[in-house]
């Protein structure tokens, strides 16, 4: 059983919702990424979404764009990110790592070579923002052949027919983007999200994660009540951006603790 499946199964038994923080690898500096990942886990991360920096993050708002730019200043590309995952795995073999990024860095390596390298680094899932199922060719199969879950996004504008198409390709979980717009926008409508999540559940048994627009304990709690996983991205990155070297880990730990308490209380 994949790590992602294992985690969802065990949380389900406990009646809990997964908390999945997102950070961009290499932000604010590559030397912090692995310690940040461990800090996230120590303070309640059930899985980690690790962003692969890209020069043209078209689907991201300003906060995550800036994180990518900070990382790229230090030349953190896909190969470096995979090395970071390897280092993380030396002391944590349990927490699923999901890479999130864009198609071009993967194409630069090649789908097969990327899948091999991701497997070697012990990555558990991959979200490729601009690879809709119609365009990603054999990529899904290459990942699944290696027990890596291709995680797909669903949006408020995805109709039932496309949900069907997507859930047939996805494994691990599906990720419902809770608003129209880019990451970090600020207009989460929890009632609408609840309705959409319910209808997605009618079409798949895969766990449903919800992200984009979760910015504090209250929205995390409300989302946790209706989803199998809560993904917190821009808010996490803002905490990193607002920190200095001395308080980086403690600021992130505090935010995680606050979010974890909220998610567990749902």
């Amino acid at each position: 059983m994949s790590r992602i499946k294992t985690v969802f199964a065990s949380l389900k038994q406990q009646g809990k919702t997964a908390l999945i923080p997102y950070i961009t690898a290499g932000d604010p500096h590559p030397k912090f990424t692995v310690s940040l990942m461990h800090t996230l886990v120590e303070h309640g991360a059930d899985m980690i979404e690790l962003g692969v920096p890209f020069s043209d993050p078209m689907a991201d708002g300003p906060v995550i764009q800036r994180a990518s730019e900070r990382a790229l200043l230090h030349k953190v590309g896909l190969t470096v990110v995979l090395d970071m995952v390897k280092t993380f795995r030396q002391t944590d073999q349990a927490t699923p790592i999901i890479l999130m990024g864009y198609a071009n860095p993967i194409e630069a390596v090649g789908a097969v070579a990327f899948a091999d390298k991701a497997k070697a680094a012990d990555v558990d899932g991959v979200i490729t923002v601009d690879y809709p199922p119609e365009e990603c060719g054999s990529f899904v199969k290459e990942l699944q052949d290696r027990d890596i879950d291709p995680v797909f996004l669903l949006s408020p504008t995805t109709d039932a027919k496309r949900v069907e198409l997507i859930v047939n390709q996805a494994s691990g979980f599906v990720y419902y983007v809770s608003l129209k717009g880019v990451t970090g926008a600020a207009n989460l409508d929890i009632v609408e999200v609840a309705g959409r999540v319910a209808s997605i559940r009618e079409q798949t048994n895969l766990p449903v994660g919800v992200g984009f627009g979760i910015r504090d304990a209250a929205t995390a709690k409300a989302t946790a009540a209706i989803a199998d996983a809560v993904v917190v991205g821009s808010r996490m990155v803002l905490a990193i951006e607002g920190s200095n070297e001395a308080n980086l880990l403690s600021n992130v730990a505090n935010l995680m603790t606050e979010l974890k308490t909220a998610v567990d209380a749902a």
Partner: peptide, 19 residues
């Protein structure tokens, strides 16, 4: 060849696939 701005085409990029 790579993917940018919604299509696949020839692209000026570095070894990491950044433009």
């Amino acid at each position: 060849v790579g993917v940018l701005h919604g299509n696949r085409t020839y692209l000026m990029q570095d070894a990491d696939g950044n433009i």
